[in-house]
Amino acid sequence: MVPKVLAYATNSATGPFEKTVIERREPGPTEVFFEVKYAGICHSDIHTARGEWGPVSYPLVPGHELAGIVTQVGSEVTKWKVGDKVGVGCFVDSCGECEFCKGGQEQFCTSSEKPTVWTYGSQGRDGKVTDGGYSQGITVEENYCCRIPDEIPFEAAAPLMCAGITLYSPLTRWGAGPGKKVAIVGMGGLGHMGVQIAAALGADTSVISQTMSKKDDGLKFGAKHYYALSELDELKKQRGTFDLIVTTVSAEMDIDLLISLLKTGGALVDVGLPEHPSTIRLGALCGGNKILAGSNIGGIAETQEMLDFCAEHGLAPQIEMITGEEITEAYDKVVASKVRYRYVIDTSSFGSVDEA
């Protein structure tokens, strides 16, 4: 019997989210079905749903920050049992055989026949377009789920599957830790996790934000210093002092300014994905052997490592819980930076399929 679940979908780039019923496939031998209890709203959901990153197949059910409870397992599943708490992030399948899949970077799968399958808006192994986590259940290959530790509040775990790993990966890759001065640009859903993770890694952590309005929060999350782009004179005093800067903002930024803040040999890493192209003066890089890089989530093993790290250090996103009927309004509030710091959808608010 194919599970039918309630979900929220949008039918156009400008349309509202409306309740609908979608079908999930019965778990195959190596798959699990889990009830999605909570789903985070990521800014990339908004970019995608509103057609800002290219053509979209509608109706679209977004959501790639999922936390739920396993209720069915396939006959060959060995990693999970009914009742386990699991999370799913941005992708749900890949070839498993290419150099990147074998190297724990499944998000960069190079297979032409079985490429990375994104959690929504992608062609799944059944030939259908994938529906995401704004739903009450999903069927996933067992290898693409992560264990959610009991130490992490279950209702706050979902955003870690994207926001958490998106910051953990570049911070660890580029050496954030004791003796390093690190800045997180932007204090939104991604940035507030970056501040917590960088501080827990032992780095001297700073926030660079548009204004000083979130200073108290930034310090509470572990930052030692807080700077605002609206107070450039103070920020410019930090030129040449940072080992690592991670920018999380999806709006256009003065990249040259950020590069000027780096030490010789320092790295500026972008995870924010602005809609429009950015420009830089290449001399700003060459003049100090500086590095400009990007980072794209993380593989399954690294995501599990991040979850375990957060559990060990008591880290979790600060969330605001919403219902399915509030998704449309929540999108506008995210764009207007009115959420502190991640909206999480409680799927129990959807009701039941029998009532739909």
Rank of each mutant, 00 (worst) to 15 (best):
H225K: 09
F350W: 04
D332R: 11
G194E: 07
Q136A: 15
A176I: 10
P170F: 14
G283R: 14
R25M: 13
H225G: 10
T20I: 11
E155F: 06
A157Q: 12
W53I: 11
G15H: 02
E31V: 04
A267W: 03
K236P: 05
S230A: 14
F34I: 00
I300A: 01
F100Y: 13
M321W: 11
L307E: 05
G218V: 09
D93V: 01
H47R: 03
T347G: 13
S260H: 01
Y8I: 04
V344H: 15
G194I: 05
V2T: 13
H225L: 09
D131L: 15
M193Q: 03
N143K: 13
S111P: 02
A199R: 13
T347P: 00
S295P: 13
E23Y: 02
A330H: 12
G137M: 00
D150W: 14
P274G: 10
H43W: 05
G351A: 11
C98W: 12
P277G: 03
E35T: 15
P27E: 03
A228N: 08
Y144G: 08
A228G: 05
C109R: 01
E35G: 08
D233I: 06
T119R: 02
C101I: 00
G127C: 00
M253K: 04
I41H: 10
D270E: 12
V246F: 07
V36E: 05
T166M: 06
T264W: 10
G74I: 14
Y226W: 09
V140S: 02
L307H: 06
S12L: 10
D217G: 07
G137C: 05
Y331G: 04
L229E: 07
I138H: 06
F309A: 03
G294W: 08
E52K: 12
E142D: 08
A284S: 09
G164F: 13
A198C: 04
C95T: 02
C145M: 14
S112E: 01
A267V: 11
T30L: 00
D126F: 09
C145E: 09
F108K: 11
K85F: 00
A356K: 01
P178M: 04
P115A: 08
L285M: 14
S352H: 12
G89Q: 14
V2P: 08
I46D: 08
G103S: 07
V92F: 05
K338I: 10
D204E: 15
I152C: 09
V335H: 00
G68P: 05
Y38N: 15
S111F: 05
I345A: 08
S169E: 02
R239S: 12
V334H: 04
G124N: 06
P149W: 05
E234W: 09
G68V: 09
E305Y: 03
W80I: 03
G124K: 06
E35P: 11
Q72A: 07
G177L: 10
E151V: 01
L6W: 06
L268G: 05
D204K: 08
